[in-house]
Simulated assay, not measured.
Amino acid sequence: MDGVKLADRLAYGAGCAARRVGFVHDAFRPDGPEAPLEPAKRFLRLSVAYALLGGSMTAPSGFAEPFRQAWADWSYLRPGDYLAGPEGVAFVAVVEPPKPMLVVMTNAVVTLARTSAPVLAGLNPYGASIRTTETVLVRGFPASLLVGGSADRAKTGLPDDARLPGFTAMLPVVAGVQPSVDDVLMDETGGRFVLTAVETVGAVWRLSLVQAVS
């Protein structure tokens, strides 16, 4: 048996296991920078079973642990696909047969925008970015958004100022888009976060953020 046939058999076996212990999920494939869970982007319905990274399917998941093993017939899936089912929405981060897939559970829907300072004739009394000058790069993507990473002081920068909380976001890489430091990420609740670092790991963006204050 060659490697191709072995990989196909392993994927089939993972799908059989998922049908016994998992739940039916809808699979979506983003084809641009907006609304990856639109009905038109659903391409498959399949069973998926999640487990903790250690392999347990009986222990509860902890806080701030977005990664899961996922068992499914991965021959139909690729990194960046979304899986929506009874346990929430996840996106595929890594597919490395014969190991189970690595997925990221999401808890927010985010929009990524690039800001620019207003350009006015003569003297500019205000040099920071404003929302009317933002250009949307990515809109409506489910993502993992958790407290963590570096923090920063409040805008005044005084020694006794409370530090602003740091956050880490993960979402699939979008072709043709490259986030950069000082871009702004917004969630569905109106929260705003400024990018302080960008890391691309395979098909995943890992963004370090600091919460924006007005």
Rank of each mutant, 00 (worst) to 15 (best):
G32L: 11
P33M: 06
E34Q: 09
A35N: 11
P36A: 08
L37I: 08
R42M: 15
L44R: 12
R45V: 11
R45A: 12
L46H: 00
G54W: 01
G55F: 06
S56A: 04
T58H: 07
S61M: 14
G62F: 03
E65Y: 00
F67K: 08
F67R: 02
Q69H: 14
A70F: 07
A70D: 00
A72H: 07
W74A: 10
W74G: 02
W74R: 15
Y76F: 15
L77R: 11
R78V: 12
G80N: 04
Y82M: 05
A84W: 09
A84T: 14
E87F: 03
F91A: 02
E96T: 13
E96Y: 02
P97H: 03
L102K: 07
L102R: 10
V104R: 05
M105R: 04
V110D: 03
L112D: 00
R114V: 12
R114S: 12
T115C: 12
S116W: 03
A117R: 15
A117W: 11
V119Y: 09
L120I: 13
L120W: 14
A121Q: 15
N124L: 08
S129L: 06
R131I: 11
T133L: 09
T133G: 13
T135V: 12
T135A: 11
V136N: 03
G140K: 04
G140E: 08
F141Q: 01
F141W: 07
P142F: 08
P142M: 10
A143Q: 05
S144Y: 08
S144N: 10
L146F: 04
L146T: 09
A151R: 13
A154I: 12
K155P: 01
K155V: 15
